[in-house]
């Protein structure tokens, strides 16, 4: 896990570095869950997401938006994911548990995943990501 919260006045800006695209998406997913639900998250329930997109930026926004949707409507909080990405097709297995108001209320709701300032770049060590969550 390699992500950090970068100073941003209004919203939550996350920067991640990872050796592969899958690991980069995983970092963004973990950052999102941490922002909304805090750190005390366990496993038990499994969900699957399949998506495709025209480009990698759209794919990450769609993936994180879908995670937000499933978490909210199904009352689930996720702690881990296994992701495969091939030709802009994503499959993610999400591991989580039911929302517990006692343990999962320390965060803040994310209203949306923004395209503003979204950067995914390949470099010598793999990939870097800057992404903004509207809170």
């Amino acid at each position: 896990m390699s992500f950090e919260e970068i100073s941003h006045t209004a919203d939550v800006k996350i920067r991640a570095h990872a050796p592969t695209l899958e690991a980069l998406f995983t970092d963004a997913f973990l950052a999102l869950m941490q922002v909304v639900y805090g750190n005390d998250r366990k496993e038990g329930t499994i969900k699957e997401i399949q998506l495709k997109a025209d480009n990698i930026e759209t794919l990450i926004c769609d993936f994180l938006s879908e995670v937000l949707f499933i978490a909210e409507v199904e009352g689930l909080v996720f702690s881990r994911t296994e992701i495969t990405i091939k030709d802009l097709h994503l499959t993610a297995i999400l591991y989580g548990e039911s929302f517990d108001p006692v343990r999962h209320s320390s965060g803040t709701e994310v209203k949306g995943i923004s395209y503003s300032g979204l950067v995914i770049r390949k470099n010598a060590n793999g990939y870097m990501l800057d992404i903004l969550f509207d809170v």
């Binding site: 919203d11 503003s116 300032g117």
Partner: peptide
């Protein structure tokens, strides 16, 4: 005014 996304806040 402050930094938002799309339009400024």
């Amino acid at each position: 005014i402050h930094w938002g996304y799309g339009f400024p806040i």
